[in-house]
Design a protein around this nucleic acid. Sequence first.
DNA 1: TCAAAAGTGTTATTGTTACACCCATGC
DNA 2: GCATGGGTGTAACAATAACACTTTTGA
Lengths: 237, 237
Amino acid sequence: MTNPADPAALPQCAVAVDLVVLTVREGQLCVLTVRRGIPPFRGRFALPGGFVLPDEGLEAAAYRELAEEAGLAREAVTLEQLRTFGEPKRDPRGRVVSVTYLALGAGLPDPLGGSDASSAQFEPVSGYLAHPAGPTALAFDHPMILAAGVERARAKLEYTGYGVAFCPPEFTVGELRGVYESVWDLAIDPANFHRKVTNAAGFLVPTGERTSRGGGRPAALYRADPAAVLHPPILRG
Amino acid sequence: MTNPADPAALPQCAVAVDLVVLTVREGQLCVLTVRRGIPPFRGRFALPGGFVLPDEGLEAAAYRELAEEAGLAREAVTLEQLRTFGEPKRDPRGRVVSVTYLALGAGLPDPLGGSDASSAQFEPVSGYLAHPAGPTALAFDHPMILAAGVERARAKLEYTGYGVAFCPPEFTVGELRGVYESVWDLAIDPANFHRKVTNAAGFLVPTGERTSRGGGRPAALYRADPAAVLHPPILRG
DNA sequence: TCAAAAGTGTTATTGTTACACCCATGC
DNA sequence: GCATGGGTGTAACAATAACACTTTTGA
């Protein structure tokens, strides 16, 4: 920023946003992918994303792509910036710097056409993580981006209340535990988990309601406290 | 990335890297700032940084600026990407997307001229954090960037071995504790801290040597294990 | 001998784990 | 009744915090 030149006279890059959209479905952590209709990597799957417009903020671009490519409203997800990838050769078309975002949502539906994203769907992350190269792998450097997104989500569950981003507005302790088990791919003791999250001051706010989704005794419903800092943290293994 | 247009035909941005370079000096967490010699914000302090070259990776640009503006070698610091700032109006000269990096080092010296950075020096972060606006504040949106960098450093001390990035290759437990106290601005019980870090499996590797910098009984010297994941974590207050 | 910093011991308290057990519902 | 998941009790264990105390140096 101390360079004397005017930015207009400087080497320019295309700036894109790419999204790692995660949700939990049937006990599996899933990511939204789109099939590419044009080269390069035509026919391959990739993360949704697109170029930032001239007067558009980065986060605004991320929300716009979320709507255009995934049909998802701003309110349906929790969005945060992940990391920026900018190696000169990462896009065969030229220099593209990609600012990536992580979006989490509860039980998100596959987009139903009528948009850029007629070919978009949620797939378990496990396959993509296990095969980061090869014909079924994601295009560009998107395997790295996905890995970064999943690792961020896993890490943030430990010391923040991030898990609730995968839950609907009202949820039971069992549903929340299911999120942790799916994201970490780990079995958790229901009794201890229940105590941990209900004791963490200000993390869960009871609504007073009960539900009986699924068998067994009806469970109390909770709402998430938006400003949750888990203390003590919930540590993995 | 699914946009059919060629990047060369797309709206372009200037891409910069800006650096939050932190070190601990005399018990104070300090940041490297440079005085701007040109408009905008001429005469004001700012974080070191500059534009990314056409065929240069982002991290490579960060290391280059570190050398040019701060006279710091790659080996002298620990570098990690922080966050990307790209609001359309953040630079009055035009659209500039800034990828920011956090660099930590042990007892770094003020750069001694002969470079871009004849006006660079380390200053305590406390003043900048306390006065994020006004005539003595950092230029551009650099107050936000600094705040993000300091918060990242503080958070990472808790659950990783990040604190050793502020220490020389060999250090005593007392020096390491000094880092934690400076970064967190908090007093820590020496006895308990000693046990915690020496018990954390594989975190500190004893060299067998002892030193007597400072008064008192000589302390054992340790080297950091590069791949340290603190378990259990060292939690603040 | 004294101050200063390193490092160990001890104890009360808190958090974690594993697992037994009771509760409330649908079938 | 029985299966299913919700939720509490409990006891062994691990980590934490507070602080007394010993060790080893320089002045």
